[in-house]
Write a protein that binds this DNA or RNA. Structure first.
Lengths: 244, 244
DNA sequence: ATCCAGCGTTGATGCAGGTCAATGATTGCT
DNA sequence: AGCAATCATTGACCTGCATCAACGCTGGAT
């Protein structure tokens, strides 16, 4: 029931990952981060930590000193909270272009690790704060992003509080599709790099219920099982299930 | 199961409420809003709509044009989202000092109405935006508040996704207690102005389960049933249930 | 004083999703 | 190729909470 076997104790923050050439990371950051305009991107890219990071494991843990802000440039991260008894709730997945740790509190309020091979830009908090104080428009942008995240979290409250397993999975798949098509071109196939356990912990279900619900969708030809993801066969059906 | 009988169609925003003398409202705003410092409060109080509002019903509805920002000065508001079939999820309760509609998007992403007799300050969005652009420190404060709300919402995701009915109620009561003691002095009695249905819709449960769980707490002497609220008899017990 | 509508409580029963367990499928290791 | 480890699927069974229903309490209307 949402327990996590290993990983509770994590190696110290970013030193867990391999540091790689930053030029690539900076370029990716510029091309991937659609939330900001060119000027804002340029300002930010000036203060990116040259030790960009290619990580396979833990990015940071809940309660840890928040020494930096991150931007995902490749791959996917899962953001989650753990209860003392091991129950896990995934509060979101971060895709290329997404910022992590924007809350400006001095400790991370959740943990983050890599779902697959990923790269992230690291922006030292000290420099970030200074830049924010100098550039009010960046502050405003930051607030817009936080407000957007808040809206997503509140939508997810409805999902976890009031929706059935079938509905939860439909909402999840359509939400993921929307985010992927914002990055890549439109496609009927949704990549699912995360495990069934991750999906279960995101949707407040068990791995068995997620698996059974997928099977149901496959059987009734709503979805098609393809390697590393699913293909949508009956979009209207998903939309009905997820309707708001 | 989280259905709401009436209230789906609401009278136009604030005109539903009775407009009252603003001097009182402004005074209350100044004394009640602990999130801001004196300078910030003064700046804001200059642009408060003189038509402050005493409301018993709907403040605003999801999807409505967001023409104003609000600050609760008295009473309590419930903030909620509805699914098309009537299922309701309450995403929060607003207490004196709390702002509503800070997201700066042009439409409200949730609905709000009064739990009991309440008063709110109304700050026109146009003036608010201008003030924000002039005063970066206010913008920063705003972002801090949004980030705090985001943290609360993410905590609530864990509650809805991974906790039992008993645990949910314990977390709810302790959270409410914490917020009340931040306003009033400390007290073992927690006022509960909202209905059992409201609590159920906040915790993703049914009214019957909430009632049964209260009864269990009363029977085992964890809580004492008092008029308009509950008294905590066994705080350690609640803390164990709510432990994070 | 009576009515009654709304709210809360409690009991009986049902079921969606959790738990437990067995079996494939996939991948990396030697 | 053979093996172990991890992940996904499926079946059998169980349970926590939902559903359905009855009833008591309270406060406002007449």
């Amino acid at each position: 029931m949402g327990t996590v076997t290993a990983l509770h104790r994590a190696p110290p923050c970013l030193d867990a990952g391999q540091h790689v050439d930053c030029a690539h990371c900076r370029t990716r950051f510029l091309s991937v981060c659609s939330a900001l305009d060119d000027d804002e991107l340029h300002e930010l890219s000036q203060i990116i930590d040259p030790r960009c990071v290619s990580a396979r494991s833990t990015l940071f843990s809940q309660g840890e000193e928040a020494g930096a802000v991150f931007n995902v440039t490749e791959g996917m991260a899962r953001l989650y909270k753990l209860l003392p008894d091991g129950r896990r709730q995934i509060i979101g997945f971060a895709l290329p272009g997404d910022f992590l740790g924007l809350s400006l509190s001095d400790q991370f309020s959740f943990s983050a690790d890599a779902v697959n091979d990923m790269r992230i830009c690291r922006i030292p908090r000290s420099k970030f704060s200074v830049l924010l104080d100098e550039k009010p428009h960046l502050m405003k942008r930051l607030h817009e992003m936080a407000a957007n995240e808040l809206m997503l979290a509140q939508d997810q409250l409805v999902v976890l509080g009031r929706r059935s397993a079938e509905e939860r999975l439909a909402v999840f798949l359509l939400g993921l599709r929307k985010r992927f098509t914002a990055i890549h071109h439109i496609s009927p196939t949704i990549p699912l790099p995360m495990s069934r356990q991750d999906i279960a912990d995101y949707l407040g279900l068990t791995i068995e219920t997620v698996s059974r619900t997928f099977s149901k969708f496959f059987k009734e030809r709503t979805l098609l099982n393809v390697p590393d993801g699913v293909r949508i066969l009956d979009l209207p059906r998903l939309n009905v299930l997820a309707q708001r």
